[in-house]
Design a binder for these strands. Structure first.
Lengths: 196, 196
DNA sequence: ACCTGAACACCGTTCAAGT
DNA sequence: ACCTGAACACCGTTCAAGT
Protein backbone atom coordinates (compact mmCIF):
# COMPACT_ATOMS: atom_id res chain seq x y z
CA UNK A 1 0.00 0.00 0.00
CA UNK A 2 1.59 3.29 -1.13
CA UNK A 3 2.61 5.88 1.38
CA UNK A 4 0.81 9.15 1.55
CA UNK A 5 3.00 11.93 0.22
CA UNK A 6 4.53 13.78 3.18
CA UNK A 7 3.27 17.12 1.85
CA UNK A 8 -0.04 16.86 0.06
CA UNK A 9 0.44 18.07 -3.50
CA UNK A 10 -2.35 19.25 -5.69
CA UNK A 11 -1.11 18.85 -9.27
CA UNK A 12 -3.09 21.92 -10.23
CA UNK A 13 -1.20 24.04 -7.73
CA UNK A 14 2.10 24.89 -9.37
CA UNK A 15 5.28 25.33 -7.46
CA UNK A 16 5.58 28.79 -5.99
CA UNK A 17 8.66 29.73 -8.04
CA UNK A 18 6.98 28.56 -11.24
CA UNK A 19 3.95 30.68 -10.50
CA UNK A 20 6.13 33.68 -9.79
CA UNK A 21 8.01 33.25 -13.06
CA UNK A 22 4.78 32.95 -14.96
CA UNK A 23 3.49 36.16 -13.45
CA UNK A 24 6.69 38.03 -14.21
CA UNK A 25 6.71 36.84 -17.79
CA UNK A 26 3.12 37.94 -18.26
CA UNK A 27 3.76 41.36 -16.75
CA UNK A 28 6.77 42.04 -18.95
CA UNK A 29 5.06 40.59 -22.00
CA UNK A 30 2.11 42.90 -21.48
CA UNK A 31 4.45 45.88 -21.30
CA UNK A 32 6.59 44.92 -24.27
CA UNK A 33 3.71 43.91 -26.50
CA UNK A 34 2.02 47.20 -25.67
CA UNK A 35 5.22 48.97 -26.72
CA UNK A 36 6.23 46.98 -29.78
CA UNK A 37 3.26 44.92 -30.85
CA UNK A 38 2.53 41.21 -31.18
CA UNK A 39 5.88 40.62 -32.89
CA UNK A 40 7.89 41.76 -29.89
CA UNK A 41 11.01 39.71 -29.26
CA UNK A 42 10.36 36.76 -26.95
CA UNK A 43 14.02 36.90 -25.98
CA UNK A 44 13.46 40.44 -24.77
CA UNK A 45 10.44 39.35 -22.75
CA UNK A 46 12.46 36.64 -21.01
CA UNK A 47 15.35 39.04 -20.47
CA UNK A 48 13.17 41.74 -18.95
CA UNK A 49 11.34 39.21 -16.81
CA UNK A 50 14.67 37.93 -15.55
CA UNK A 51 14.04 34.33 -16.53
CA UNK A 52 15.83 31.95 -18.83
CA UNK A 53 14.59 31.59 -22.37
CA UNK A 54 13.63 27.99 -21.73
CA UNK A 55 11.41 29.05 -18.85
CA UNK A 56 9.43 31.28 -21.13
CA UNK A 57 8.98 28.44 -23.61
CA UNK A 58 7.99 26.05 -20.85
CA UNK A 59 5.17 28.33 -19.73
CA UNK A 60 4.17 29.51 -23.19
CA UNK A 61 5.25 27.08 -25.89
CA UNK A 62 4.15 29.42 -28.68
CA UNK A 63 3.76 33.13 -29.15
CA UNK A 64 0.01 32.58 -29.45
CA UNK A 65 -0.08 30.94 -26.02
CA UNK A 66 1.46 34.07 -24.57
CA UNK A 67 -0.93 36.35 -26.43
CA UNK A 68 -3.87 34.27 -25.36
CA UNK A 69 -2.85 34.73 -21.74
CA UNK A 70 -2.73 38.48 -22.37
CA UNK A 71 -6.02 38.63 -24.24
CA UNK A 72 -8.19 35.98 -22.61
CA UNK A 73 -9.91 38.34 -20.21
CA UNK A 74 -10.58 40.80 -22.96
CA UNK A 75 -12.25 38.09 -25.03
CA UNK A 76 -14.39 37.06 -22.09
CA UNK A 77 -15.42 40.60 -21.42
CA UNK A 78 -16.33 41.19 -25.03
CA UNK A 79 -18.38 38.01 -25.26
CA UNK A 80 -20.34 38.94 -22.14
CA UNK A 81 -20.77 42.44 -23.48
CA UNK A 82 -22.51 41.05 -26.58
CA UNK A 83 -25.19 39.47 -24.44
CA UNK A 84 -25.66 42.63 -22.39
CA UNK A 85 -26.12 44.67 -25.53
CA UNK A 86 -28.50 42.10 -26.96
CA UNK A 87 -30.64 42.38 -23.83
CA UNK A 88 -30.63 46.17 -23.54
CA UNK A 89 -30.35 47.63 -27.01
CA UNK A 90 -32.31 47.39 -30.25
CA UNK A 91 -30.84 44.75 -32.55
CA UNK A 92 -29.10 47.13 -34.90
CA UNK A 93 -27.53 49.28 -32.21
CA UNK A 94 -26.43 46.19 -30.33
CA UNK A 95 -24.62 44.89 -33.41
CA UNK A 96 -22.97 48.15 -34.39
CA UNK A 97 -21.93 49.08 -30.86
CA UNK A 98 -20.46 45.66 -30.25
CA UNK A 99 -18.63 45.61 -33.56
CA UNK A 100 -17.18 48.99 -32.83
CA UNK A 101 -15.86 47.80 -29.49
CA UNK A 102 -14.49 44.67 -31.09
CA UNK A 103 -12.72 46.78 -33.69
CA UNK A 104 -11.08 48.84 -30.98
CA UNK A 105 -9.99 45.75 -29.04
CA UNK A 106 -8.65 44.05 -32.14
CA UNK A 107 -6.40 47.07 -32.52
CA UNK A 108 -5.26 46.96 -28.89
CA UNK A 109 -1.77 45.84 -29.93
CA UNK A 110 0.11 46.62 -33.07
CA UNK A 111 -0.02 43.55 -35.27
CA UNK A 112 -2.98 42.07 -33.48
CA UNK A 113 -5.43 42.25 -36.40
CA UNK A 114 -3.03 40.16 -38.47
CA UNK A 115 -2.55 37.70 -35.63
CA UNK A 116 -6.30 37.29 -35.14
CA UNK A 117 -6.97 36.91 -38.83
CA UNK A 118 -4.26 34.28 -39.25
CA UNK A 119 -5.94 32.30 -36.48
CA UNK A 120 -8.73 31.40 -38.88
CA UNK A 121 -6.25 29.22 -40.76
CA UNK A 122 -5.00 27.42 -37.65
CA UNK A 123 -7.55 25.73 -35.40
CA UNK A 124 -4.66 24.54 -33.19
CA UNK A 125 -3.75 28.11 -32.31
CA UNK A 126 -4.18 29.06 -28.67
CA UNK A 127 -6.11 32.08 -29.94
CA UNK A 128 -8.55 29.99 -31.93
CA UNK A 129 -11.08 29.51 -29.14
CA UNK A 130 -11.11 33.20 -28.29
CA UNK A 131 -11.63 34.17 -31.91
CA UNK A 132 -14.38 31.61 -32.22
CA UNK A 133 -16.12 33.09 -29.19
CA UNK A 134 -15.90 36.50 -30.84
CA UNK A 135 -17.34 35.15 -34.06
CA UNK A 136 -20.15 33.47 -32.18
CA UNK A 137 -20.93 36.50 -30.08
CA UNK A 138 -20.97 38.67 -33.21
CA UNK A 139 -22.97 35.98 -34.97
CA UNK A 140 -25.75 36.10 -32.40
CA UNK A 141 -26.08 39.86 -32.71
CA UNK A 142 -25.93 39.56 -36.47
CA UNK A 143 -28.67 36.95 -36.59
CA UNK A 144 -30.94 39.09 -34.42
CA UNK A 145 -30.45 42.10 -36.68
CA UNK A 146 -31.06 39.97 -39.74
CA UNK A 147 -34.24 38.57 -38.19
CA UNK A 148 -35.49 42.14 -38.01
CA UNK A 149 -34.55 42.71 -41.64
CA UNK A 150 -31.97 45.33 -40.69
CA UNK A 151 -28.97 43.52 -42.16
CA UNK A 152 -28.68 41.72 -45.47
CA UNK A 153 -29.24 38.01 -45.12
CA UNK A 154 -26.15 37.13 -47.14
CA UNK A 155 -23.77 38.49 -44.51
CA UNK A 156 -22.14 35.74 -42.45
CA UNK A 157 -20.46 35.91 -39.05
CA UNK A 158 -17.19 35.20 -40.86
CA UNK A 159 -17.74 38.18 -43.16
CA UNK A 160 -18.28 40.37 -40.15
CA UNK A 161 -15.24 39.05 -38.33
CA UNK A 162 -13.05 39.51 -41.39
CA UNK A 163 -14.22 43.05 -42.12
CA UNK A 164 -14.01 44.17 -38.50
CA UNK A 165 -10.44 42.90 -38.36
CA UNK A 166 -9.74 44.56 -41.69
CA UNK A 167 -10.91 47.88 -40.28
CA UNK A 168 -8.63 47.46 -37.28
CA UNK A 169 -5.80 46.60 -39.63
CA UNK A 170 -6.16 49.82 -41.60
CA UNK A 171 -5.32 51.98 -38.61
CA UNK A 172 -2.84 49.38 -37.42
CA UNK A 173 -0.72 49.74 -40.54
CA UNK A 174 -1.52 53.41 -41.22
CA UNK A 175 -1.97 55.28 -37.93
CA UNK A 176 -2.47 58.43 -39.99
CA UNK A 177 -5.88 57.06 -40.90
CA UNK A 178 -7.01 56.85 -37.27
CA UNK A 179 -8.99 60.04 -37.81
CA UNK A 180 -10.79 58.25 -40.64
CA UNK A 181 -11.61 55.19 -38.52
CA UNK A 182 -15.15 56.00 -37.50
CA UNK A 183 -16.01 57.09 -40.99
CA UNK A 184 -14.63 53.90 -42.52
CA UNK A 185 -16.49 51.91 -39.92
CA UNK A 186 -19.81 53.49 -40.89
CA UNK A 187 -19.06 53.05 -44.57
CA UNK A 188 -18.49 49.32 -44.20
CA UNK A 189 -21.49 48.89 -41.96
CA UNK A 190 -23.71 50.64 -44.46
CA UNK A 191 -22.73 47.94 -46.90
CA UNK A 192 -24.37 45.42 -44.57
CA UNK A 193 -27.75 47.11 -44.79
CA UNK A 194 -30.30 45.85 -47.28
CA UNK A 195 -30.76 47.85 -50.45
CA UNK A 196 -34.26 49.18 -50.31
CA UNK B 1 43.71 69.68 -71.72
CA UNK B 2 42.27 66.37 -70.50
CA UNK B 3 42.45 63.31 -72.65
CA UNK B 4 39.33 61.86 -74.16
CA UNK B 5 38.48 58.57 -72.47
CA UNK B 6 39.70 55.76 -74.69
CA UNK B 7 36.28 54.16 -74.68
CA UNK B 8 33.41 56.63 -74.59
CA UNK B 9 31.37 56.03 -71.46
CA UNK B 10 27.79 57.00 -71.03
CA UNK B 11 27.24 57.28 -67.28
CA UNK B 12 23.70 56.05 -67.75
CA UNK B 13 24.96 52.84 -69.33
CA UNK B 14 26.01 50.62 -66.44
CA UNK B 15 28.87 48.23 -66.67
CA UNK B 16 27.85 45.00 -68.33
CA UNK B 17 28.53 42.87 -65.25
CA UNK B 18 26.50 45.22 -63.06
CA UNK B 19 23.58 45.03 -65.44
CA UNK B 20 23.78 41.26 -65.50
CA UNK B 21 23.81 41.08 -61.70
CA UNK B 22 20.85 43.40 -61.48
CA UNK B 23 18.88 41.24 -63.88
CA UNK B 24 19.73 38.07 -62.02
CA UNK B 25 18.74 39.59 -58.69
CA UNK B 26 15.42 40.71 -60.11
CA UNK B 27 14.69 37.33 -61.65
CA UNK B 28 15.40 35.45 -58.42
CA UNK B 29 13.59 38.03 -56.33
CA UNK B 30 10.51 37.67 -58.51
CA UNK B 31 10.60 33.92 -58.03
CA UNK B 32 11.25 33.97 -54.30
CA UNK B 33 8.75 36.71 -53.52
CA UNK B 34 6.15 34.80 -55.54
CA UNK B 35 6.94 31.76 -53.39
CA UNK B 36 7.33 33.30 -49.97
CA UNK B 37 5.89 36.79 -50.09
CA UNK B 38 7.27 40.28 -49.59
CA UNK B 39 9.12 39.18 -46.46
CA UNK B 40 11.27 36.69 -48.33
CA UNK B 41 14.86 36.59 -47.12
CA UNK B 42 17.11 39.02 -49.00
CA UNK B 43 20.03 36.77 -48.17
CA UNK B 44 18.26 33.98 -50.01
CA UNK B 45 17.68 36.22 -53.00
CA UNK B 46 21.39 37.07 -53.19
CA UNK B 47 22.33 33.43 -52.69
CA UNK B 48 20.03 32.18 -55.42
CA UNK B 49 21.12 34.95 -57.76
CA UNK B 50 24.73 33.97 -57.14
CA UNK B 51 25.82 37.42 -56.04
CA UNK B 52 27.31 38.75 -52.83
CA UNK B 53 25.01 40.25 -50.26
CA UNK B 54 26.63 43.65 -50.73
CA UNK B 55 25.82 43.56 -54.42
CA UNK B 56 22.15 43.16 -53.69
CA UNK B 57 22.26 46.12 -51.31
CA UNK B 58 24.17 48.20 -53.83
CA UNK B 59 21.46 47.71 -56.44
CA UNK B 60 18.52 47.82 -54.05
CA UNK B 61 19.34 49.64 -50.83
CA UNK B 62 16.00 48.74 -49.25
CA UNK B 63 13.46 45.97 -49.59
CA UNK B 64 11.03 48.51 -50.98
CA UNK B 65 13.46 49.39 -53.78
CA UNK B 66 13.47 45.75 -54.79
CA UNK B 67 9.69 45.46 -54.61
CA UNK B 68 9.29 48.64 -56.62
CA UNK B 69 11.43 47.14 -59.35
CA UNK B 70 9.16 44.09 -59.31
CA UNK B 71 5.92 46.04 -59.23
CA UNK B 72 6.61 49.17 -61.28
CA UNK B 73 5.23 47.79 -64.53
CA UNK B 74 2.12 46.57 -62.78
CA UNK B 75 1.50 50.03 -61.34
CA UNK B 76 1.95 51.60 -64.76
CA UNK B 77 -0.40 49.15 -66.35
CA UNK B 78 -3.05 49.73 -63.71
CA UNK B 79 -2.83 53.50 -63.98
CA UNK B 80 -3.26 53.32 -67.75
CA UNK B 81 -6.10 50.90 -67.30
CA UNK B 82 -7.99 53.45 -65.21
CA UNK B 83 -7.99 55.90 -68.09
CA UNK B 84 -9.09 53.26 -70.56
CA UNK B 85 -11.99 52.30 -68.34
CA UNK B 86 -12.91 55.94 -67.81
CA UNK B 87 -13.10 56.40 -71.57
CA UNK B 88 -15.04 53.25 -72.40
CA UNK B 89 -17.26 52.41 -69.46
CA UNK B 90 -20.00 54.16 -67.50
CA UNK B 91 -18.57 55.88 -64.41
CA UNK B 92 -19.74 53.30 -61.91
CA UNK B 93 -18.60 50.28 -63.87
CA UNK B 94 -15.26 51.94 -64.51
CA UNK B 95 -14.71 52.47 -60.79
CA UNK B 96 -15.81 49.04 -59.65
CA UNK B 97 -13.95 47.19 -62.40
CA UNK B 98 -10.77 49.08 -61.73
CA UNK B 99 -10.99 48.62 -57.99
CA UNK B 100 -11.51 44.94 -58.45
CA UNK B 101 -8.40 44.70 -60.58
CA UNK B 102 -6.46 46.76 -58.08
CA UNK B 103 -7.58 44.46 -55.30
CA UNK B 104 -6.31 41.45 -57.22
CA UNK B 105 -2.97 43.10 -57.95
CA UNK B 106 -2.53 44.22 -54.34
CA UNK B 107 -2.80 40.55 -53.45
CA UNK B 108 -0.26 39.48 -56.06
CA UNK B 109 2.30 38.63 -53.37
CA UNK B 110 1.72 37.44 -49.85
CA UNK B 111 2.31 40.37 -47.53
CA UNK B 112 1.88 42.95 -50.27
CA UNK B 113 -1.28 44.57 -48.87
CA UNK B 114 0.58 45.30 -45.63
CA UNK B 115 3.58 46.63 -47.52
CA UNK B 116 1.43 48.93 -49.63
CA UNK B 117 -0.55 50.17 -46.66
CA UNK B 118 2.58 50.93 -44.65
CA UNK B 119 3.80 53.05 -47.56
CA UNK B 120 1.22 55.69 -46.62
CA UNK B 121 3.28 56.40 -43.52
CA UNK B 122 6.57 56.72 -45.36
CA UNK B 123 6.76 59.16 -48.27
CA UNK B 124 10.45 58.24 -48.69
CA UNK B 125 9.54 54.67 -49.56
CA UNK B 126 10.40 53.57 -53.07
CA UNK B 127 6.83 52.35 -53.32
CA UNK B 128 5.32 55.69 -52.40
CA UNK B 129 5.14 57.05 -55.95
CA UNK B 130 3.48 53.91 -57.25
CA UNK B 131 0.90 53.95 -54.48
CA UNK B 132 0.25 57.61 -55.10
CA UNK B 133 -0.37 56.88 -58.78
CA UNK B 134 -2.86 54.20 -57.73
CA UNK B 135 -4.61 56.60 -55.39
CA UNK B 136 -4.77 59.24 -58.08
CA UNK B 137 -6.00 56.85 -60.73
CA UNK B 138 -8.66 55.57 -58.37
CA UNK B 139 -9.40 59.13 -57.33
CA UNK B 140 -10.22 60.18 -60.89
CA UNK B 141 -12.65 57.30 -61.32
CA UNK B 142 -14.13 58.04 -57.92
CA UNK B 143 -14.65 61.71 -58.70
CA UNK B 144 -16.40 60.87 -61.97
CA UNK B 145 -18.77 58.46 -60.22
CA UNK B 146 -19.43 61.02 -57.50
CA UNK B 147 -20.17 63.68 -60.12
CA UNK B 148 -22.90 61.39 -61.42
CA UNK B 149 -24.24 60.94 -57.89
CA UNK B 150 -23.45 57.24 -57.89
CA UNK B 151 -21.05 57.30 -54.96
CA UNK B 152 -21.37 59.11 -51.64
CA UNK B 153 -19.57 62.44 -51.67
CA UNK B 154 -17.86 61.75 -48.32
CA UNK B 155 -15.75 58.93 -49.73
CA UNK B 156 -12.16 59.98 -50.37
CA UNK B 157 -9.50 58.41 -52.60
CA UNK B 158 -7.68 57.48 -49.40
CA UNK B 159 -10.77 55.68 -48.07
CA UNK B 160 -10.95 53.72 -51.29
CA UNK B 161 -7.25 52.86 -51.26
CA UNK B 162 -7.40 51.74 -47.64
CA UNK B 163 -10.48 49.58 -48.07
CA UNK B 164 -9.28 48.01 -51.31
CA UNK B 165 -6.03 47.08 -49.58
CA UNK B 166 -7.99 45.82 -46.59
CA UNK B 167 -9.97 43.51 -48.86
CA UNK B 168 -6.77 42.16 -50.37
CA UNK B 169 -5.41 41.69 -46.89
CA UNK B 170 -8.33 39.52 -45.81
CA UNK B 171 -7.56 36.84 -48.36
CA UNK B 172 -3.85 37.44 -47.86
CA UNK B 173 -4.03 36.44 -44.20
CA UNK B 174 -6.89 33.97 -44.53
CA UNK B 175 -6.70 32.19 -47.89
CA UNK B 176 -9.73 30.18 -46.80
CA UNK B 177 -11.79 33.30 -47.38
CA UNK B 178 -10.77 33.55 -51.03
CA UNK B 179 -14.15 32.09 -51.96
CA UNK B 180 -15.74 34.97 -50.08
CA UNK B 181 -13.63 37.62 -51.82
CA UNK B 182 -16.09 38.74 -54.48
CA UNK B 183 -18.90 38.85 -51.99
CA UNK B 184 -16.90 40.94 -49.54
CA UNK B 185 -15.90 43.22 -52.38
CA UNK B 186 -19.53 43.86 -53.31
CA UNK B 187 -20.46 44.39 -49.67
CA UNK B 188 -17.85 47.09 -49.17
CA UNK B 189 -18.67 48.75 -52.45
CA UNK B 190 -22.33 48.89 -51.55
CA UNK B 191 -21.31 50.96 -48.57
CA UNK B 192 -19.99 53.57 -51.00
CA UNK B 193 -23.36 54.07 -52.61
CA UNK B 194 -25.62 56.90 -51.45
CA UNK B 195 -28.48 55.97 -49.17
CA UNK B 196 -31.59 56.83 -51.13
C1' DA C 1 32.88 50.96 -60.44
C1' DC C 2 31.70 47.30 -58.80
C1' DC C 3 31.86 42.92 -56.18
C1' DT C 4 32.65 39.84 -52.13
C1' DG C 5 31.94 37.94 -47.81
C1' DA C 6 33.23 38.44 -43.02
C1' DA C 7 31.60 40.84 -39.00
C1' DC C 8 28.08 42.55 -35.94
C1' DA C 9 24.00 42.46 -33.57
C1' DC C 10 20.14 40.48 -33.49
C1' DC C 11 16.18 36.50 -33.91
C1' DG C 12 13.28 31.72 -32.62
C1' DT C 13 13.72 27.16 -30.97
C1' DT C 14 15.72 23.15 -28.74
C1' DC C 15 17.86 20.62 -25.24
C1' DA C 16 21.67 18.90 -22.09
C1' DA C 17 22.94 19.98 -17.64
C1' DG C 18 21.82 21.55 -13.45
C1' DT C 19 18.86 22.35 -8.66
C1' DA D 1 9.44 19.93 -11.47
C1' DC D 2 11.38 23.36 -12.87
C1' DC D 3 15.13 26.49 -14.42
C1' DT D 4 19.23 27.98 -17.13
C1' DG D 5 21.81 29.29 -20.94
C1' DA D 6 24.66 27.46 -24.59
C1' DA D 7 24.07 25.78 -29.23
C1' DC D 8 22.09 25.86 -33.78
C1' DA D 9 20.42 27.83 -37.72
C1' DC D 10 18.87 31.58 -39.28
C1' DC D 11 18.08 37.07 -40.14
C1' DG D 12 19.27 42.42 -41.93
C1' DT D 13 22.85 45.65 -42.50
C1' DT D 14 27.49 47.51 -42.91
C1' DC D 15 31.98 47.87 -44.59
C1' DA D 16 37.05 46.71 -45.32
C1' DA D 17 39.38 44.46 -48.78
C1' DG D 18 39.68 43.14 -53.19
C1' DT D 19 39.41 43.39 -58.83
Amino acid sequence: MPLEPSTPVDPRTPRADAQRNRDRILAEAAALVAEQGTQASLRDVARRAGVGLGTLYRHFPTREDLLEALLGRRFDHLAARADTLAATEPAERALTDWLYEFTLDAGAYQGLPATLMATLEDPESALYAGCLRMRQAGGRLLAAAQRDGLIRPDVTPLDVFALANALSWITDRAPTLTERRDHLFRLVLDGFRPRP
